[in-house]
Write a protein that binds this DNA or RNA. Sequence first.
DNA 1: AGTTAGCACTCGGCAAGCCGGAGTGCTAAC
DNA 2: GTTAGCACTCCGGCTTGCCGAGTGCTAACT
Lengths: 351, 351
Amino acid sequence: MELNERKQRILSAVIDIFIRTGEPVGSKALVGLLDNSVSSATIRNEMAELAAMGYLEQPHTSAGRIPTAIAFRLYIDKLMKRNELSEQDRRGIDGMLTHAADDPEKLIGTASQALAEETGCIAVTTTPTGKTADIRMIDVLRISSLSAALLLMSGSGLLRTKVCRFDRVISDNTLEMLSQQLNQNFCGCSLSDIGLPQIQGMVVSLGEHGLLCAPALNAFYQLVQESAEAEVLLTGQLNLLRHPDYEPERARDLLSFLAHRELLSGLLTAMPNGLRVVIGSESQRPELDGSSIIVTRYKLGGGPDGSIGIIGPLRMNYATEIPRIEYFAWSIGKILDEIMGENNGRIINEE
Amino acid sequence: MELNERKQRILSAVIDIFIRTGEPVGSKALVGLLDNSVSSATIRNEMAELAAMGYLEQPHTSAGRIPTAIAFRLYIDKLMKRNELSEQDRRGIDGMLTHAADDPEKLIGTASQALAEETGCIAVTTTPTGKTADIRMIDVLRISSLSAALLLMSGSGLLRTKVCRFDRVISDNTLEMLSQQLNQNFCGCSLSDIGLPQIQGMVVSLGEHGLLCAPALNAFYQLVQESAEAEVLLTGQLNLLRHPDYEPERARDLLSFLAHRELLSGLLTAMPNGLRVVIGSESQRPELDGSSIIVTRYKLGGGPDGSIGIIGPLRMNYATEIPRIEYFAWSIGKILDEIMGENNGRIINEE
DNA sequence: AGTTAGCACTCGGCAAGCCGGAGTGCTAAC
DNA sequence: GTTAGCACTCCGGCTTGCCGAGTGCTAACT
């Protein structure tokens, strides 16, 4: 059986209506959308064939048809007519993001919130991965005689701190030494290059201070790990509870699943570059059955760096939301490059 | 009508059962709990009087009775027998918190999570208020030729950063100057003492650099404001969706309300010191009808400083959870003092 | 006077049964 | 290949009836 023109038109129409109403689509409702060129009986025949081909299914006998995941796949890849953002919408996004753009994390946070609000879905974003980023600067700041804060600035604009506690009172001298050694050894290194061996090497090169500084080195290691890892941010979970497609139990299960950031993170990083739409069970995750994910990457300094997208019901308005997400990603990339400026990679450490 | 011994015992028993089962309590169920000393008919009579006095109510004729908010109030203030934590539980809490205690914010975060998990409610915590805390140190770190990060360390152990962007390329000299002036003017100041006038004064004292540094001063002002403000942290929202007492719609409404952090923050700071239980409508907030809040303050360096507590259904296990929350608060205070150490207030700025 | 057994009554919740409507598949005619 | 017509299916909402839990009241008992 072949997917001829008319079948495609019918399938498109079914998906359009289903996205709009969320209810099974019957043959009569389609007559008008096809210019009354055929009767409902003909459409019924076509729909039966589409069902046999796996594009449509019935919730039960004598109900209308709903599109399958395969149909959505085809729709997104071939049939859909993109609904580009208006100039006004774009300016709105640009303005808002530019306004919020101090540091990258805040920028991503604002974008996430806006995206969730505009789409009515859950927005999912990751902060820029630090993996490829280099360390620009390390600082050691005393808090009390027994504790100090480590500060790490990376090339991707991240600024992170971590507090560590020492076992014994530690002198200014030792801290000074620690700071120097850390900078000497690790400035310019890529975050992903720093592992336990390097840290252990530090214990040696610190000599007599080595043991004393162990907690700090440990904290530094953790700090590096945390900075290298992309943080997954979810916004708008409440949207899910309000959505008619999610009965409470399903919403709860999905939210429970999404609470496991490590799974989600894996899912996101496993994706190829460029825009990607995962429809329902395609993800191999039963919890995501009945939900779709649209994600893309935003870029920082040329390469893809973090993810931004939405998670919502199968019947999302792909034609509108895909361009929206693409625009968000583009805008974020642009602003990030602006923030990070031309000095990306140069190490400047004053004071 | 007087609340005699037997009425009190009956009321207590009704509340105990209701807390356990969540269902209206009938007269027969109470016979056993009162040592079979009276028959169900007698209990019925007493219950009718308790209902007339406003302590019990019926969801409908011919159903059992459920305790009113007034009954819970009485129960918590007078009737309840506290169910203290076991030595083992305490050690568990201590261990976990000590382990997680790098910086105050992380400590609070961990405590919040643990509390939510142990109680099955939403945990609500605030980070230490910086209001009374002094500024220990300010640092200015260059990011690019057009941007820099401000770092602020406060006496309450908070470490915050904020990135600012300049309009024009800014020299190392200017940044150096800015850093010096900021430290000179504000180190040792209490966070709440810094207002716009002081910031404006800075523009003058920076002379020719004043205008150039305006974005940084603006960022600094925001940084101070953010640091002074207690941040409200909610954990375990999913617990609400799982709880049988919350039908989905109510859960959603409550969560929507809780999303307004400013309202919640107001609610928390308006409370007197010491442990406080707000039962249902006592809060004057219709959204909190049917929910209870238990909060107390944890201390830092002698004075009360932040809040920790839970939000959940009316029928919480007060006898168990109140001691638990008190212990969490006590333990947090102890650990905070340990972290902050004896140097609280001393300004040490190396490098 | 306080307590208790007995009884009629009330009401929510559940299952069964009924019906209307929407939509289908099939057949026969165009 | 298309269409009208028709019998059929099944969901969803509605009504009905029944069961059980629990009450309030009354009359008898201690």
